[in-house]
Amino acid sequence: MAFHEIRFPLRLALGTSGGPERRTDIVSLSNGRETRNQRWARARRRYDAGSGIRSLDDLYAVLAFFEARSGRLHGFRFRDPVDFRSGPPGRPAQATDQRIGTGDGMRLTFPLIKTYADAGGGTVRDIAKPVAGSLLIAVAGRPVASSDVSCDWTSGLVTFAAGKAPAVGAAVQAGFEFDVPVRFDADRIDIDLAQFQAGRIPTIPLVEIRP
């Protein structure tokens, strides 16, 4: 299998439904209490692209995209309609949105991450598919020139130029937009054109590919 660095049609992604999924085992005890065990350390996203289809042209676009990926065989990029920036979706990314590491004076490479946290706890998400041209970097709160840093848009690794390693103890921060690496979660798409024209939307499941 391979990963195709191509994005699912944006106009269709904006109308999809879905979001993060977790796996938790819950055992009810005889005294009425329960125990909970977290089976997955991090969430996995699932989406239904069928809910974004509004016309026959949209339907054909999905079918063509499905065929080009050979069904479930090849992965691709997908923009989550809600969670696609380092900060809130309502404002542009800022260089200080996410702390991705701490300098030691020698380290040059840092992986992009996004942290979800509040007073009760938090979790860290690996960002493997940043959007080309969207990266902003800051060290100790100060913006870094684009000539001093590069990014592998296919893996999410940020690399500082030789001689530009962040100083010891300096916070390395990043702002960016990102896609979710996904694949189709079915090798078949069922379409009844008569029912589609009557308002029935086909189900087209997508599932996140974990790094």
Rank of each mutant, 00 (worst) to 15 (best):
D83L: 12
D104P: 01
I100A: 05
V131L: 08
A64V: 12
G87K: 05
T96W: 00
R39A: 15
S70N: 10
N31S: 12
D118C: 07
G90L: 07
V124Q: 02
S30G: 09
D57Y: 11
R39Y: 13
K129D: 05
D104V: 03
G71I: 13
G71V: 15
A140R: 04
D58A: 00
L63W: 10
Y60I: 10
A93L: 09
V82T: 04
R77S: 09
R39N: 15
R46Y: 08
D126H: 07
R54P: 00
L108S: 03
A132L: 09
V124W: 01
V139S: 05
L73S: 05
S86E: 06
G50K: 11
A140P: 09
V131H: 01
A117C: 04
A61N: 06
G32V: 14
G120M: 05
D104G: 01
G133S: 14
A140M: 08
P89I: 14
R77H: 11
D118K: 06
L73A: 11
A68C: 05
R44Q: 14
V131W: 00
F84D: 01
V124T: 14
S51T: 15
R69F: 06
F65D: 00
V27E: 15
A128C: 14
G122N: 07
A95G: 03
A41H: 14
S51V: 13
S70W: 08
K129Y: 04
P111E: 03
R46M: 13
A64D: 10
A61V: 14
I113A: 04
G87P: 10
A117W: 05
R72P: 04
A95S: 04
E67I: 13
G87F: 10
P92M: 07
G121R: 02
G121H: 03
T109F: 02
L108N: 01
D58I: 05
G50W: 11
V139H: 03
I127G: 00
G133W: 13
L59Y: 00
G101T: 05
A119P: 01
A117D: 02
G120W: 03
N37S: 15
S86Y: 10
R107C: 02
Q94F: 07
G90T: 15
R142E: 15
R91V: 07
P81F: 12
D97G: 08
V82K: 02
E34N: 08
S55I: 11
I113C: 06
T115F: 05
S28G: 12
P81E: 06
Y116S: 05
V139K: 02
V62C: 01
S134F: 14
Y47C: 09
R33L: 12
A119D: 07
D57Q: 10
I100W: 04
V139I: 13
I127E: 00
S30R: 12
R85G: 11
N37M: 11
G103D: 01
L63H: 09
